[in-house]
Design a protein around this nucleic acid. Structure first.
Length: 899
RNA sequence: GGAAGCAUAGCUCAGCUGGGAUGAGCGCUCGCCUGACUAGCGGGAGGUCAAGGGUUCGAGCCCCUUUGCUUCCACCA
């Protein structure tokens, strides 16, 4: 009849099978159901180019925990999955593979290239999904989306047109970051600064004399890190307050090589303290110079082609690469005697975060999103707490960005992505932004249009993810029901790219926040604290870890021992510890099932398969104690999880299962289970009932963290529910609080620990079994144990051992240990070294003195008394009383011993 | 240049709005193959909570200063 757990825990043999079962049963699927409260998470869509890495594993484990938890709590839990087309990343990868075949993307043409890209998506887009499944992610795969599927495309076009109409999307000529290798503009957020060793070239330009010729005697010296840009210089700037250069007002300088006169302008931007206080101005190739140029109406001379070679404005340098041009220009300047000196200089250079190429600031016509109005509700939402960031300190990073926000450059010169819905009239060039190609030009009546060649920044579509995936811009039931979503889980590294943009998009399009909480996690680093990266080759593949230790172990490892938003180090020893825990749970469960089976064989009935009320009267102190402990655990764990303190919550479950349940309760209950007496069957049933039900609830608490092992055990041990993942989350039950029993067993644990210590010190041969009877002068303690017997295996072999238990705080209580069949009687005096005992008591006395001082300090402190809540004061008063009692006992015992 | 974080046991890290560091895992060490589990059981050693100052009856936690490390933002030619 009974199913059995395999003798050894082998995750490989259970995980895939259980996942398939869950899929088949459609447990992950959520439908609109107005009778239930929704709980929604949208997945940060992984790139289709992606391979699951530790960051994903952490991110998705956290989401899965929250979703499974809420699902068990009875929410209609939807975890909305999908993937991101990742325009640049994917396009770069495809170009790479094409290169291997000796094909250029231009050879294929736009359509041919896109065909390849879609094939590529089909081939690799599913890979990461399969990997997420390995992890146990309970996403609603029936709702899987893609940022470039039909619905998302619609949403993108809709938003673009709406915002354009509002004037918040515009096309403008600006200086942008250009990647000469990817051949596209990139946003500020995609620029990564890198410290590079370079040079500082000190150069001088001759002033222009009265005849309009370069002076032979007057020069203006300055320094630059990019001498080649001089080809595009249109001015030289000094600070208006700089008296050294006051004489330059209105004069011109001679731009060598290009051989023309350019003005000297005065601008606050120039730092007088830095270098010579003179700056050459190249508006077309430097963002700051661009601003200066705008202020002084300077011409913008672009000297570069898109591939970073010099263009026709560079005269004889035309066609040279930027670095080659630099070399030759420096040589020429030197020949002319205009090079003063070369200094070594290390400075930050902007590079493209995707390919590492040094970016080139260029002036280009690009599409921008105007941010000043759009950002306001996003700032407000975090300020007034509508959206909570966890940990809170992330707010600083958030505001740092919003306060310095600049317009968002959204056009990319790529093919893979959402093509901009802007159309140019072939006859008059009029720009029409519309959802589809217009038929007639509103300006000239022309009927032929060409669509803008550019595509949108990949984050433009992901910004809409929380509502586009739910059907927007259509008015869907889903949108109505699941939006706003609840929690967003992500790494702090994409707060600017994604989080902020989703927030302002949500407010703008939906008039409502996209989620109420953002839960940030840190980076997963290697065992030495380095970032995991391909180039270092120090990445740990989560799939290998799963293969070796199981997904459960990996998940537990990623969640424990880490506070929100902090980076964590990953090393195998920690995974091993997690796997060992899974194994522990496995074996404890085997033990319980084994005993149930034996009991059934003996009595022919499963007389523990009853309700709590039916078994209540038969429970013994140990049973009540563990039930009470479990009850508290349920409350605490639920609390922690609701506060998103996942690591703390699971740590508590771990401690409960291993220490309290396995190491204490199971040991205490063994003698009862092994008893051959028929009279003990009732007691046996009570313990089996407790074992099974405590285990079941503990498994439930653990399930969000370790879904596979808990499901396998749950389904084996029990028949009425078909899966733990749709079972009911345990709830705190007041009637299962047994304070007296709890206190008594805790006391006894202290005592037994004492016995073990004594025995170890005396090197007494171990006895296998022992029963502990509690003799207490306190009535309530006696009452608890009157009927109860507590048995231990692997316990000390002494009998009639008196142990002081004032450590647990109750005076004059003592424990006597009776060992069956033992003939050895060891008087207390022989067991305890009097000197040691005095030392211990003196230490205790000192500690109590400290405690008394502390509590007295509090109770006598006016400020504390006026401000502290009553409960707190009462608690402290109780402590005071307890400490005073203990003190008295310690003192009398000391006196006794010292005599 | 601006900002944030970290500094607690040999290692990696928890410690909630200030109220006893019996902290956790790993490692080390001693003793156990006890009928669930050697992926285990029972003990033990190991911390002036980075340094200095302040607030407080009381500080790992709050404030200031210093030192060291990490990260983010900006970028001065």
């Amino acid at each position: 009849m009974s199913k059995e757990l395999a003798k050894t825990y082998t995750p490989k043999s259970i995980e895939d099978r259980l996942y398939e079962k869950w899929m088949e049963k459609k447990y992950f699927h959520a439908e609109v159901d107005k009778t239930k409260k929704p709980f929604t998470i949208v997945i940060p869509p992984p790139n289709i180019t992606g391979q699951l890495h530790m960051g994903h594993a952490l991110d998705n484990t956290m989401q899965d925990i929250l979703i499974r938890f809420k699902r068990m709590q009875g929410y209609n839990a939807l975890w909305q999955p999908g993937t991101d087309h990742a325009s640049i990343a994917t396009e770069v990868r495809i170009i790479e593979t094409l290169k291997e075949e000796g094909i250029q993307k231009e050879d294929l043409g736009r359509e041919g290239f896109l065909k390849r890209a879609w094939e590529w998506k089909e081939e690799y887009g599913g890979r990461i999904i399969g990997q997420l499944k390995k992890l146990g992610s309970s996403c609603d795969w029936d709702r899987e989306r893609f940022t470039m599927d039909e619905g998302c495309n619609k949403a993108v076009t809709e938003v673009f047109c709406k915002m354009h109409e509002k004037g918040w999307i515009y096309k403008g000529s600006r200086i942008i970051n250009w990647c000469p290798v990817c051949n596209t503009s990139i946003s500020d957020a995609e620029v990564e600064y890198e410290e590079q060793a370079g040079h500082f070239w000190h150069i001088k330009y001759p002033l222009v004399d009265e005849n309009g010729q370069p002076s032979k005697t007057e020069f203006l010296e300055f320094a630059t890190t990019r001498p080649e840009t001089m080809l595009g210089d249109t001015a030289v700037a000094v600070n208006p307050k700089d008296e050294r250069y006051a004489y330059l007002k209105g004069r011109m300088v001679w731009l060598p090589i290009v051989n023309k006169a350019i003005p000297v302008v005065e601008d606050e931007y120039v730092d007088m303290e830095f270098g010579t206080g003179v700056v050459k101005i190249t508006p077309a190739h430097d963002p700051n110079d661009f601003e200066v140029g705008k202020r002084h109406n300077l011409p913008e001379v672009n000297i570069m082609n898109d591939d970073a070679t010099i263009n026709e404005n560079g005269g004889k340098y035309e066609g040279l690469d930027r670095y080659e041009a630099r070399k030759q220009i420096v040589e020429e300047l030197e020949k002319e005697g205009l090079l003063v000196k070369i200094e070594d200089y290390s400075h930050n250079v902007g590079t493209h975060d995707r390919c590492g190429t040094t970016i080139e600031p260029l002036i280009k016509k690009q599409w921008f999103v105007k941010m000043d109005e759009l950002i306001k509700p996003a700032v407000e939402a975090v300020k007034n707490g509508d959206i909570k960031l966890i940990p809170e300190r992330m707010e600083k990073t958030y505001f740092n960005w919003t306060d310095n926000i600049r317009d968002w450059c959204i056009s990319r010169q790529l093919w893979w992505g959402h093509r901009i819905p802007a159309y140019y009239c072939d006859s008059c060039g009029e720009i029409v932004v519309d959802k589809k190609m217009p038929a007639v030009c509103p300006k000239c009546g022309g009927t032929h249009f060409t669509q803008d060649e550019d595509t949108l920044d990949t984050w433009f579509s992901s910004a809409l993810w929380p509502f586009s995936t739910l059907g927007w811009p259509e008015k869907t039931e889903e949108l109505d029901y699941f939006y706003p979503t609840d929690v967003l889980v992500t790494g702090y590294d994409i707060i600017f790219f994604w989080v902020i943009r989703m927030i302002f998009s949500g407010y703008e399009q939906m008039k409502e926040k996209p989620f109420h909480t953002v839960l940030f996690h840190g980076l997963v680093r290697d065992s030495q604290g380095r970032k995991m990266s391909k180039s270092l080759g120090n990445g740990i593949d989560p799939l290998e870890i799963i293969d070796q230790y199981g997904a459960d172990a990996l998940r537990l490892t990623l969640i424990t021992g880490n506070a929100p938003g902090n980076d964590m180090r990953f090393y195998n020893e920690r995974v091993e510890a997690s796997r060992n825990f899974a194994n522990k749970v496995w074996n404890a469960s085997r033990f319980i099932m084994m005993n149930m089976e034996q009991a059934e064989e003996k009595t022919g009935a499963r007389n523990w398969e009853v309700s709590y009320n039916e078994i209540k009267e038969q429970l013994e102190p140990a049973d009540k104690w563990i039930l009470s402990k479990l009850n508290t655990l349920v409350r605490d764990v639920t609390d922690n999880m609701e506060q998103y303190e996942l690591g703390i919550a699971v740590q508590k479950v771990y401690d409960f299962i291993w220490d309290e349940f396995c190491d204490w309760y199971i040991e205490m209950v063994k003698p009862r289970l092994y008893s051959k007496e028929e009279a003990d069957d009732r007691s046996k049933a009570a313990s089996l009932w407790t074992l099974k039900n405590v285990l079941k609830d503990a498994l439930k608490l653990l399930h969000p963290y370790m879904p596979f092992v808990t499901e396998e055990i749950f389904c084996t041990i029990q028949s009425e529910e078909e899966s733990i993942m749709i079972s009911r989350w345990p709830e705190y039950a007041k009637e299962r609080n047994y304070e007296k029993e709890e206190a008594a067993i805790e006391l006894m644990k202290e005592a037994v620990r004492g016995i073990r210590n004594v025995r170890t010190q005396m090197n007494v041969a171990p006895s296998r079994k022992a029963a502990v009877h509690v003799v207490s002068e306190k009535e309530e303690v006696r009452n608890v144990f009157e009927e109860g017997r507590l048995f231990f295996t692997s316990l000390a072999g002494a009998s009639e051992v008196m142990i002081q238990t004032d450590r647990a705080g109750i005076a004059d209580d003592a424990v006597s240990v009776v060992v069956p069949n033992a003939t050895l009687y060891i008087p207390f005096a022989e067991l305890v070294d009097i000197g040691q005992e005095i030392e211990r008591l003196e230490k205790e006395e000192k500690r109590l003195e400290g405690e008394l001082a502390r509590v007295n300090g509090m109770l006598n402190n006016e400020r504390f008394m006026s401000k502290a809540p009553e409960a707190k004061v009462a608690e402290e008063r109780a402590k005071l009383e307890k400490y005073e009692q203990m003190m008295a006992q310690v003192k009398s015992r000391l006196e006794q011993l010292q005599r």
